[in-house]
């Protein structure tokens, strides 16, 4: 087959001013979002390639019904923003990349046309004038960055439809070497009003008693101390009796992240159960799988280069 759908979700909005160290976090955030978009595929799209902050999906054959396509766009858009809302409320890191992640946006380009697949070793690539057209449509004059773009070729003379009360189609033309490409687009930002983040689990210490407490002063700033004490990845380097820590579910630290600790007397699962941050004080807790033990970490800024760490252990 030489005709098919081209479907490109494209993420934008990261500040160009993130520093070198923050680029690593923006890369991890984008990676997580791209994986989420791939997992949200429900109409049998194939991934051709990941192109920076975008994914080139395709599907040979007749174009899907517009409503089916909208449902796909809606699912990706809602999961994308739900993930960002959840990260914004749960994130440990306060770097520019992690803070500005909440402002990321998603647009989706959908086009129908001719293209073909070719293989180089184990890699498959798409080639054809409409692949170029779909990419050219990413660069356009649409002011906002959250929209769904549908080309006239995809509509196949079917009329446009409003699938929601707020949907409002605009028309435009993109001039390319292949001629004028007529397209329609509708903003998607309204969908964000329908997304609700799952509430954070409450931290309950009322049924527990403090059984241990210790503190120490360090000649360092509070953020550096927090990077070492807060991340599960360094825990085996300082927590006595911990031989290995395997992180399970998140590359960037946040409330809800889980890890399995190999201790000298067996394995335990711990998850991050709460977190709060101000410039002078950072608090976070870790709870065991059964909820019987809570380790309460408090970091206090004493001076620019002096910080205190207090660890309190609570048990049921």
């Amino acid at each position: 087959e030489t005709k098919g759908l081209l479907f490109i979700p494209d993420i934008s909005g990261f500040s160009r001013f993130v520093t070198e160290s923050e680029i690593n976090h923006s890369r991890m955030i984008i990676q997580e979002l791209l994986e989420l978009l791939i997992n949200a595929n429900q109409i049998g799209l194939e991934v051709s390639e990941i192109e920076g902050d975008a994914i080139l999906f395709y599907k040979f054959g007749e174009p899907p019904q517009l409503k089916e396509l909208y449902k796909q766009v809606e699912k990706m858009f809602c999961q994308f923003h739900k993930n960002l809302m959840a990260y914004d409320r749960r994130k440990y890191c306060q770097c520019k990349a992690c803070i500005s992640a909440a402002n990321l946006s998603l647009k989706v380009i959908t086009h129908y046309g001719e293209f073909t697949e070719y293989h180089v070793k184990n890699f498959s690539k798409l080639i054809g004038k409409d692949v170029i057209v779909a990419h050219q449509l990413l660069k356009n004059d649409i002011a906002q960055h959250e929209y769904w773009l549908v080309t006239k070729d995809l509509l196949h003379n079917h009329p446009l439809a409003d699938f929601t009360g707020w949907m409002n189609w605009n028309d435009s033309i993109k001039q390319t070497e292949s001629g004028d490409i007529h397209f329609h687009y509708t903003q998607l930002s309204e969908l964000k009003n329908e997304i609700h983040d799952d509430p954070l689990p409450p931290l309950n210490l009322s049924d527990k008693r403090k059984i241990l407490s210790a503190s120490s002063l360090y000649e360092t700033d509070i953020i550096t101390l927090f990077h070492i004490a807060g991340a599960f990845e360094y825990r085996h380097l300082w927590w006595e009796g911990v031989e290995k820590v395997e992180e399970i579910n998140h590359s960037l630290p946040r409330v809800g992240m889980q890890s399995i600790w190999t201790l000298n007397n067996g394995k335990m699962l711990y998850y991050s159960s709460s977190y709060s941050y101000t410039d002078d004080k950072v608090e976070f807790t870790e709870t065991d799988e059964k909820g019987d033990q809570v380790t309460y970490f408090t970091l206090v800024k004493i001076a620019d280069n002096k910080a205190k760490l207090i660890i309190d252990v609570y048990k049921t």
Binding site: L212, A214, A229, L237, W238, E240, I311
Partner: peptide, 22 residues
């Protein structure tokens, strides 16, 4: 047990110092 656990926790806090120097 309690004294031993406290000593272990204190030792853990001391272990952070060389990590901060890296």
């Amino acid at each position: 047990g309690q004294k031993k656990m406290e000593a272990t926790l204190k030792k853990s806090l001391e272990n952070i110092i060389p990590l901060l120097e890296k």
